[in-house]
Amino acid sequence: MYLVSSSLRFGALLIAGFAAVFYMTPPLLRTVGLRAFSMASEAYKAGSVSAAYVTCPNDTVAKDIARGLVERKLAACVNVIPQITSIFEWKGKIEEDSEVLLMIKTRTSKVSALTEYVRSVHPYEVCEVISVPIEQGNAPYLSWVTDTVPE
């Protein structure tokens, strides 16, 4: 009998100890722990978000296109990456140009509409619009993209 009651007492003390440590832990550490648990439990459907890439002749064109994409809810976020060098063949000649790269995060289902918008405002005769589906990443960020860009 003594053995059973001491085991129960030990278990109760152990649970009380864990509870005390949890509630006495600084709020920041508790938040980090809870966030890590929630991130691990969030589901993301692979490929439902894509990263699209567009090259632009200069910063002004790049920012105009980026702003238009976000305003029209065709993209959640557009990174404007300055000063890239592109080397390509165009009309039988090797060309080298300084360009600006847009990295666009959107729903995969919006890539066609995004492409049509870019083509309608882009100054190039044939503009680059390519995309790749995102298989995995930070689930809260990918959820934010899908929340920001409506279906």
Rank of each mutant, 00 (worst) to 15 (best):
K63E: 09
R72M: 03
T85A: 12
P57I: 12
R67S: 11
E71V: 13
V61M: 10
V61R: 07
L69N: 05
I65Q: 09
R72S: 13
A76P: 09
V80C: 01
N58S: 01
T60H: 10
T55C: 02
L74M: 15
I65D: 08
K63Q: 11
T85H: 12
A62Q: 07
P82L: 06
R67K: 13
V61E: 13
A76F: 11
C77S: 06
V78I: 03
D59H: 06
I65L: 13
P82M: 05
R67V: 11
D59F: 05
P82D: 11
L69D: 06
D59Y: 06
C56Q: 02
I81H: 00
R67P: 01
L69Q: 03
K63W: 01
A76G: 13
I84W: 07
T55D: 04
P57T: 09
C56L: 01
D64N: 07
V80A: 04
G68P: 02
A76D: 06
K63F: 02
D59E: 14
G68Q: 05
D64K: 11
N79A: 12
K73A: 15
Q83H: 15
I81K: 00
I81Y: 00
R67T: 13
D59A: 07
N58H: 03
I81Q: 05
N79D: 13
V70R: 11
R67E: 11
R67W: 03
G68S: 13
V78H: 01
A66N: 02
A76L: 08
K73C: 10
N79I: 08
R72E: 08
I65K: 11
A66C: 03
P82R: 08
Q83L: 12
L74Y: 15
A66T: 04
C56K: 01
I84R: 09
P82K: 10
K73Q: 15
V78W: 04
A62N: 08
I65R: 09
D59V: 05
I65S: 09
V70A: 13
V61P: 07
N58Q: 00
A76N: 08
A66P: 02
E71C: 07
I84G: 08
T60C: 02
T60D: 14
D59G: 04
L74E: 14
V70S: 12
D64A: 09
K63Y: 02
N58V: 02
L69M: 05
C56V: 01
Q83E: 15
N58F: 03
N79W: 12
N79H: 15
A66D: 02
P57C: 12
P57R: 12
C56F: 00
A62D: 09
V70F: 10
I65T: 10
V70N: 11
K63C: 04
R72F: 00
K63V: 05
K73G: 08
K73E: 15
Q83M: 13
T85E: 14
Q83T: 11
N79E: 11
L74Q: 15
P57Y: 11
T55Y: 05
I65C: 09
K73H: 15
T55H: 04
T60M: 08
C56H: 01
G68Y: 02
L69A: 05
N58L: 02
T85Q: 15
K63A: 04
G68A: 12
I81F: 01
G68N: 10
V61Y: 08
Q83C: 14
I84S: 06
I84Q: 12
P57K: 10
G68M: 04
A76R: 08
P57V: 11
A76Q: 06
T55Q: 00
V80Y: 04
